[in-house]
Each structure stands twice: as C-alpha cells, then as structure tokens.
Design a binder for these strands. Structure first.
Length: 410
DNA sequence: CCTCCACTGGAAACCTAGGCTC
DNA sequence: GAGCCTAGGTTTCCAGTGGAGG
C-alpha cells in the first residue's frame, strides 16, 4: 500500500512541467499587460486627476469576457494608489464583483470594508450602511475613493439602478472627500436601460475593449508560458492551439490561459514531461466538465430537480420538452422523494435561469392553437449532471437516478 | 380574420433565517 | 424583547401574446 502512495507522492512532487503555475490563474495580474497599451493610457488619463487631489470622472468600461477589462482596471488602480502614496495624496480603491456580490447591501458592505469599517453581513438597512460610509469618508478628510464595480449589469438587472444613483449622489454629502465609480460590463446594451440621470453622470467617460486577435493571444500566452513552464515543456503548436480555441470564443484570454494551465496539469497528472496537443484537446473537454459540475452543484434544490426533469423529458428519444411537460415530470419527482413541488410560475423562471447558465436551451415559440411555450432541450452532458445530482441526499437515496442512467445506457 | 391555447413575464407580497438598535 | 432592517426563494394574481385552426 505504502509503495503505491509513495509513488503518487513522488510523481507529484518531483516532476512538473510547471515552474510557476500561479501566473496562469485567472486572478493573476501580470506586471505588464500586452496589447492593452491604449486602454491603459486612456483609463490612466481619466483617473489621473486624483493625484492632484481632484475627483476623477466616473468611467464606463465595455468589452466581452476575457478582453482584459478587469486586469487593466486593477493594474491601473494599483499603480495609481502607489503613486498617490508617494505623493502623499489619500487615494484608495475598492474592487467589487457584482456577479458574486449581487445585492446593494453587499456592495455597500464591501465599500465600507475598504474604508476599514466592519459591517455585519445582514441586519442593517442599506441607508444605514450608506450613512456610515459618508460619515467615514468625511472623517478621513481629503480621501478620494475609487470604486470599481465589475460586472455591473448583474446588479442592475436584479435590483435596479437605485444603488448607482445613491453612490453618484453621495458626493453632494461629502465635504472634502469624494467617490468615483468605474463600471465594468460585457453587456454593450446595458447602459441603454439605465435611468437618464445615471446614464449621464456614470457615463462621463467611456472605454471600449475589443477582443484579442489570435496573434495577440499567442503573444500573451507566450509571455505567461515563459514564467509558468520550465523550458522545453511545451510541444510546438500548443500555444497556438490554445489561442485558436479561445479565438473562436471571441478572443477570450481567460479561456486561453485556462486551457493552457489545465493542459499542463493533465501532463503532470499523466506523468509526462511535455505538454502536447492532445493535452490541450483534453483540457477543452475537462474545462467544460468542470464548469458544468460547478454550476450544477451550486444550483438550489428545485433548480436541480427541474434540470433532472429536463433530462427526463428528453429521454425517450425526444429532442425537447415543453414547460408543461417538464413541470408534470418535476412535480411527480418532487412528490416521489417527499418534497413540496413549487408552482408552475416558479418553474418557468427556473427554466429561464438554467437557460442563462447555458445548461439548457429554452426557446420561446408559439404553436398557435396549442399555445405559447418554451421549447427546452439539454445543452450539456447528462452523465456529468447526474453524477453531481447523486451527491444530493434526497436524490442519491432514491432510485430515480439509477432508472435514468439505465435509460441513457450509462 | 378572429379565437383561444399554454403559457410568459410583471408586480406585489409572503416566509424563513439572520441581525441591528433601543 | 420589541420593532425594524436585510437576503432569497417562493406564491398569488393577472394581463399579455404568436400564430394554427376554424
């Protein structure tokens, strides 16, 4: 037994294609950002007044995922704050991702924390938190706070633009301090459904990030690979393949880096001393599987049940199910395992949510006399989903999953 | 050209579990 | 402990609606 383990340990410890795997992780900000000089310069230009103690304009940054919006924002602000420190100007910044912190309260709590305030995770009114921030900023005289609100469209979609309005208006209550907003979104149409008051004040400046071209992706991957891998660890063409896969996904650099990293991890796991093209292809499959597992796992219970019902509705050789059919199946399953089923209205919403997550495709069609409904089909691997669902106590112990697996021939 | 199906999607309100202040 | 806050998931109610079949 020991020998087996020893071998595993040896293998992981001794040989690795990596020199420094960290530089390939999504939240790593490299010391220099390639092919974003213009964007860096322009954002710097907008925010530079803070070095003279003046309030910078609010900025809006648009661009698809993996175009370096977050990286550029963090990069510029890190440098800005450092420079401000040297000059003795009080400039701070907060970075908040509004997809993860998608309520007004949590956003305010994060901003408050950046000002060294302690805020409980629930209990206070948003107005109270806002008030404390104002008080704090007035106490810290001449402080310029820059709040980076990443994926800002998520908050607005769920809770409206009230918070943005309040944050913008907060400046009128501040004496010598100020707050500026940097909004980041990958939804170009986002600004259109903003209130006119906010649109004008938040969009004082606008930056648009265009996707990376394949050769730019290659540059980026090469420079990171030099840091990340030991020399000679990459077969010729590995980087190019990662780049071309990612270029197909609208030049998404994050995806390119993920592919490269996972390809490397696969090589390590297989005990090979070189990353080859085949590893990249495997990495692509793995990446999709991880995403699916992660999303499915974090689904609320009824979301999982509805997803399972979608699988069942497409079981008997059918390509899609309708909302009504899926609801019937769902209801039966829920009662079967001793759960109160939710209403059709709710299931309708859950189906939309699953669609947005990309797990299923739900297209709205009208079948004339036979009413309007959503045509739902599974867009992901049923086997992976069922594996995750079997972790669920309610489902794991029932025989439903076994039955489905049999029908699927797994 | 009109009807009417099978839902969709908006709005408000409810419920549970948490936490503040006084 | 009262009274008032929050987040999330949900229920209740209801006014639409695209287009096949009459």
């Amino acid at each position: 037994m020991d020998d087996v383990l020893d071998e595993v340990f040896e293998r992981t410890l001794k040989k690795s294609v990596f020199k420094n795997r960290r530089v390939l992780l999504p939240d790593y900000i490299p010391p220099t950002l390639l092919h974003r000089d213009e964007e860096i310069r322009r954002l710097g230009l907008v925010l530079a007044p803070s070095l003279k103690g003046e309030k910078p304009s609010n900025v809006f940054i648009y661009g698809l995922t993996g175009t370096g919006k977050t990286a550029v924002a963090k990069y510029v602000l890190d440098k800005l704050v450092k420079k401000a420190g040297e000059l003795g100007v009080r400039t701070r910044y907060v970075y908040v991702n509004l997809r993860q912190r998608d309520t007004p309260y949590r956003v305010l709590a994060d901003i408050a924390e950046a000002l060294d305030l302690r805020i409980p995770f629930t209990g206070l009114s948003t107005g109270e938190v806002l008030g404390r921030i104002v008080k704090r900023l007035n106490l810290l005289e001449d402080t310029i706070l820059i709040a980076v609100l990443d994926e800002i469209d998520f908050l607005v979609k769920k809770h409206g633009d009230d918070l943005l309005y309040k944050l913008v208006r907060m400046n009128s209550e501040l004496k010598d301090s100020s707050i500026s907003l940097v909004g980041i979104t990958n939804n170009i149409y986002f600004i259109e459904h903003l209130d006119a008051r906010i649109k004008s004040s938040l969009g004082e400046e606008e930056l648009v990030f265009s996707p990376y071209k394949t050769d730019q992706l290659i540059d980026i991957l090469k420079s990171r690979a030099e840091e990340a891998f030991i020399p000679g660890a990459l077969e010729n063409g590995v980087i190019e393949l990662c780049a071309s896969y990612a270029a197909k996904e609208h030049g998404d650099a994050r995806r390119a880096l993920d592919l490269l990293r996972i390809a490397g991890e696969l090589a390590d796991r297989l005990g090979e001393d070189k990353v080859v093209l085949e590893h990249v292809k495997m990495a692509r499959v793995e990446l999709e599987k991880n995403r699916l597992t992660e999303i499915t796992r974090t689904l609320p219970l009824h979301g999982k049940l509805v997803l399972l019902s979608v699988i069942q509705s497409t079981l008997a050789g059918r390509r899609y199910g309708t909302t009504g059919e899926i609801y019937d199946i769902y209801k039966r399953t829920a009662i079967d395992i001793g759960l109160d089923p939710v209403t059709l209205r709710r299931v309708s919403d859950i189906l939309s949510e699953l669609d947005m997550l990309g797990l299923i495709s739900a297209r709205l069609i009208s079948r004339g006399r036979y009413g309007k409904t959503r045509v739902v089909s599974l867009e992901s691997d049923a086997k992976t989903i069922i594996n995750v669902l079997s972790e669920e106590p309610f489902l794991g112990e029932s025989s439903i999953l076994d039955r489905i697996m049999k029908s699927l021939g797994i």
